[in-house]
């Protein structure tokens, strides 16, 4: 196995009395693709937000390219709190460099393509803005054209506002924006869930092509096992904040060992789908868990 580009270990996050993420650890190989599967409340989205730095873990570490991410984040946060005119200029530029370096480690694509772009900015401007921040010396117009081409959009879309584009086109733009930073890891949080089936297939194929072309690693957060099968090498199944099963995607889907994974698989509509059976299995699982939990 190749050197891991992303190492998540012992992640824990508590909201009030609710343990959202409970001792979550996994690694992703360089250029690899990991699926994180779970239902609502499984903690998969919180895990994603911790990886990209939108949330901070109560315990555990996230390392990308061998660099400890959360540690650096905490330092930056400490400095942020004391923000004011007295803060030296050098500290500010140091923080800026740190922020940019963190952004180049990992980027994220969000679920809702209708809300993940600034509604006022034309697509080209939005891309140029990212390029100006991260690659100030580059040839921006040429790179914008290249990025749009990579995600299957033409220069006509560069002048359009988000509202002039379809959901699939917007999601392509969101992917282009993430790629503009040139990250090592891309976190996709239900990135195709809001799209129509025919558009979803286009985006999934695009993502597969980009991985082959750029060697970028994916963390694919999703509830859809069909999607997992389509774009990931490995998978972890999360339930109530904890990982209940992990392994190569083909193996887990063909021969699940945990009863919850089996329930998930059985719940996917297809030949032999029996809602009564699924309902019974779900109740049985909940009861078995209730017995295990100490009162």
């Amino acid at each position: 196995m190749a050197e891991p580009v992303l190492e998540v270990s012992g992640l824990r996050k508590v909201f009030g009395s609710q343990v959202a993420v409970d001792d979550v650890s996994f690694t992703v190989a360089a250029g690899g693709s990991l699926g994180v599967v779970g239902e609502s409340g499984s903690g998969k989205t919180t895990t994603a937000r911790i990886i990209v730095g939108l949330d901070h873990a109560d315990a555990g570490t996230v390392r990308i390219d061998g660099r400890d991410r959360d540690h650096a984040g905490r330092k930056a946060r400490g400095a942020d709190a004391g923000r004011g005119p007295s803060v030296a200029r050098s500290a500010r530029s140091g923080r800026r460099a740190e922020r940019l370096a963190r952004a180049r480690q990992v980027q994220m694509v969000f679920q809702d393509p209708f809300l993940s772009l600034d509604p006022r900015l034309p697509i080209g401007t939005a891309l140029t803005e990212v390029l100006r921040l991260h690659h100030p010396d580059g040839d921006h117009p040429a790179r914008v054209t290249e990025l749009l081409d990579q995600v299957g959009l033409g220069t006509r879309e560069a002048t359009a506002l988000p509202r002039g584009l379809s959901g699939g086109q917007r999601q392509r733009v969101a992917i282009a924006k993430a790629l503009a930073v040139e990250p090592s890891v891309l976190v996709l949080d239900e990135a195709v869930a809001a799209l129509d089936v025919s558009v979803q297939a286009q985006i999934l194929n695009l993502l597969a092509d980009l991985r082959a072309e750029l060697g970028i690693a994916y963390v694919f957060i999703t509830h859809d096992l069909g999607v997992v099968r389509c774009v990931t090498d490995e998978v972890v199944v999360m339930r109530r904040g904890a990982i209940v099963e992990r392994g190569a995607t083909d193996m887990v889907l063909a021969d699940p060992s945990h009863s919850y994974t089996r329930l998930l698989l059985e719940s996917v509509p297809g030949p032999g789908w029996d809602p009564q059976l699924i309902t019974a299995a779900r109740r049985a699982l909940a009861e078995a868990e209730a017995e295990l939990t100490p009162r």
């Binding site: 990209v52 939108l54 800026r96 952004a103 969000f110 809702d112 809300l115 772009l117 600034d118 930073v181």
Partner: peptide, 26 residues
């Protein structure tokens, strides 16, 4: 709550830049 602002944070823009260039105009 809108993810486009979270996207700017992930992309490494400073809070000041996000507020002045994106939040306030919107």
């Amino acid at each position: 709550q809108r993810p486009y602002l979270a996207a700017y944070r992930v992309q490494g823009f400073s809070n000041w830049a996000i507020c002045v260039r994106h939040l306030i105009p919107n």
